[in-house]
């Protein structure tokens, strides 16, 4: 009897996991966003101003977002894909062409982010935050030069076995390509073989692959070095002062996350209101103060925390090379996927 009862309990448990699907109606907005990337304060403010009930789910990589969208109806209205993922989502027909360039607050967008490679003239997306992908080192553990990718791929003894990597195929492979001095979106078999060997050889020095725990693992001291995005890194430093963001001499990836509306969204009008709301400089500043990256709209300065004006993570020293990396060709993506699967298995 208890056997049966425990089976029943297990079934109930499984059922509870799958229930609780999306709900839509007038006055609702369902957001699908990166983890830890939108302060409650802004959700509340938007709800109050527009009488809209907001719900939010989170993901931890652009690829996870893509997988969810490809799997079919999600019930989400808006999302925050990174630059190259916006290009892919447009190509795959997964975004609604909502023409945010006709919205009232569009005028606040920094002109240099209007004709971006992934969405020329902003027909689908508006800037959310932009930043860099790098890594941090606990200077209390390792006092040497941290401005090189050698720290990650051929780490000093102090850091070996204490490195956390982001669970992100492009960021990790691009890092490897930079370390070896090869170009991005590379389909040269010899060079990719070198990357494959580099990653396989470095794996023994790595503690874990974790994106949503990237800050926690550094703050707790389980990892003494770890890949991280600059703003998330600043938040890590606030909790542990000895962490320092690296500006590797080999270069680094810059990215921009963008607010988009998904194809078939149930609440397109509310989604557009939300886009407009997030382009308001004061709101963009509230977001920036929380996420600690950089806004893509102008006029946020009066509302920004003083610390952001001088923080090392968002004010790179002269001469650091940063690049946006567009999506690669299909054959390159397949090769990357195989290198990545090979690394994790």
């Amino acid at each position: 009897m208890y056997f049966r009862r425990s089976l029943f309990a297990a079934a109930l448990f499984a059922g509870a996991l799958t229930l609780g699907g999306p709900a839509w109606a007038e006055g609702k907005l369902n957001i699908y966003n990166w983890f830890d990337y939108l302060p409650q304060e802004l959700i509340d403010k938007f709800s109050k101003e527009h009488g809209v009930e907001v719900t939010m789910d989170t993901y931890d990589s652009n690829e996870a977002l893509l997988a969810r969208l490809k799997a079919g109806v999600t019930g989400y209205d808006v999302g925050v894909p990174g630059d190259y993922m916006v290009a892919i989502l447009i190509k795959e027909g997964l975004l609604e062409k909502v023409q945010p360039n006709k919205l009232e607050n569009y005028k606040h967008i920094d002109p240099k982010f209007v004709d971006v490679y992934f969405d020329k003239g902003r027909e689908y997306s508006v800037p959310y935050q932009w930043g860099t992908t790098g890594f941090m080192v606990d200077t209390a553990t390792y006092g040497g030069d941290i401005d090189t990718l050698k720290v990650i791929f051929e780490p000093p003894a102090e850091l070996s076995g204490k490195i956390n990597m982001l669970k992100d195929v492009n960021d990790v492979i691009n890092m490897g390509l930079r370390y070896l001095g090869h170009s991005r979106c590379n389909n040269n078999p010899e060079q990719l073989k070198e990357v494959n060997a580099l990653l396989q050889g470095a794996k023994k020095h790595w503690l874990s692959f974790n994106s949503d725990g990237a800050k926690e693992v550094l703050v707790s001291g389980d990892a003494a070095a770890g890949m991280i995005w600059n703003g998330f890194g600043m938040r890590a430093r606030a909790e542990k002062g000895t962490l320092k963001y690296s500006y590797p001499k080999e270069g680094m990836t810059a990215w921009m996350d963008n607010l988009v509306v998904f194809k078939g969204a149930q609440n397109v009008e509310n989604a557009k209101k939300f886009m407009n709301f997030m382009m308001e400089p004061e709101n963009a500043a509230t977001l920036t103060n929380f996420a600690r990256y950089t806004a893509g709209v102008m006029g946020t300065e009066p509302f920004l925390d003083d610390e952001l004006k001088t923080a090392y993570e968002v004010n790179p020293p002269e001469g650091v090379s940063m690049e946006f990396v567009p999506p690669c060709e299909d054959d390159v993506i397949r090769l990357y996927d195989r290198i990545w699967t090979n690394l994790l298995k």
Partner: peptide
């Protein structure tokens, strides 16, 4: 496990996310 040593469940999940197979 830190996502380094996959078990079958992770392998399958990975095919639907990062590996897209």
């Amino acid at each position: 496990g830190g996502g380094k040593n996959l078990m079958i469940g992770n392998l399958i999940a990975m095919q639907f996310q990062a590996s897209r197979n």
